[in-house]
């Protein structure tokens, strides 16, 4: 893991890896999401309690998983950037943030849509939804901080530290929100991804989750290459202006 990670820290090796991995990850993403959505919408059974609303689970739950996984990945990359000075890792974290924010937005919007028939209202301060909302704010803070400096590298370093502080804080936030929620005893609890899930629902869930994960890899590769091009352009421009003076 560490060695392959270090090897990927070389931009040239990364480009080679990205070129080879991109078609595969796009293919798995399209296949996984396509078949998962069809399975979830048409082939899987309706829940005996929630009826057809349970079909929202196949987009809501994997999106929430990816939102959390993406933040963990971002924090890991940020740590690698700050500790080992792997600039590529920092750039990858920068590329991951908007993706994570999009997954978080999907989880929030679909959760809200699911809440309407389940709770009778669009938004309930349910423990899970609230935690995801705070996660969304953390993503926004990271992106805002990274973009707030004239010196791009300075912004990236500040934002990387914020990502680390955030990942330390996230379990505490999760714990406190759970505690707060039981204190206020909500009217009903969204039963999603509980342990008693039937196999006929587990399969489409697993397939969509795979599709989401492959999508995450593919879009990350695209965005990292895009960021690398931008950073290289700026480095060249700096060198040019230095050559002129």
């Amino acid at each position: 893991m560490t060695t392959s990670f270090h090897r990927l820290a070389n931009p040239a090796r990364f480009q080679k890896f990205a070129r080879r991995a991109l078609p595969w990850s796009w293919a798995v993403a399209v296949l996984g999401l396509g078949s998962g959505f069809v399975w979830g919408l048409a082939l899987s059974p309706a829940d005996y309690q929630q009826g057809d609303t349970v079909r929202v689970m196949y987009v809501h739950v994997p999106a929430a998983w990816m939102a959390m996984a993406c933040y963990a990945l971002m924090a890991l990359l940020s740590a690698s950037f700050l500790v080992w000075k792997h600039q590529l890792a920092g750039i990858a974290a920068l590329a991951a943030a908007p993706v994570g924010a999009c997954f978080t937005a999907i989880a929030l919007i679909t959760g809200s849509l699911w809440g309407k028939p389940t709770w009778g209202t669009w938004w309930v301060w349910d423990a899970r939804l609230t935690s995801v909302l705070v996660l969304f704010f953390l993503y926004l803070g990271y992106m805002a901080l990274a973009g707030a400096f004239d010196d791009r590298l300075r912004g990236l370093r500040a934002a990387s530290l914020l990502a680390l502080v955030g990942i330390i804080n996230l379990p505490i936030i999760k714990f406190s929100v759970d505690w707060w929620n039981t204190l206020h005893q909500p009217a009903s609890i969204l039963r999603a991804g509980g342990p008693s899930i039937h196999a006929s629902m587990l399969w489409p869930l697993a397939i969509t989750a795979l599709g989401f994960a492959a999508f995450l890899v593919a879009i990350l590769l695209v965005r990292i290459r895009s960021e690398l091009a931008l950073w290289r352009t700026e480095a060249l421009m700096r060198r040019q202006t230095r050559g002129m003076t």
Binding site: V134, F137, L138, L140, G141, A144, L145, A148, F149, D150, R154, G155, A158, L162, V165, G166, N169, I172, I173, F175, S176, V177
Partner: peptide
């Protein structure tokens, strides 16, 4: 936020979620 543009609003966005617990 030292050295950042618009640091006032930025501090709020960064700090408020961390103060939730």
């Amino acid at each position: 936020v030292l050295g950042a543009r618009k640091s006032g609003a930025l501090i709020g966005l960064i700090v408020l979620p961390l103060q939730v617990p």
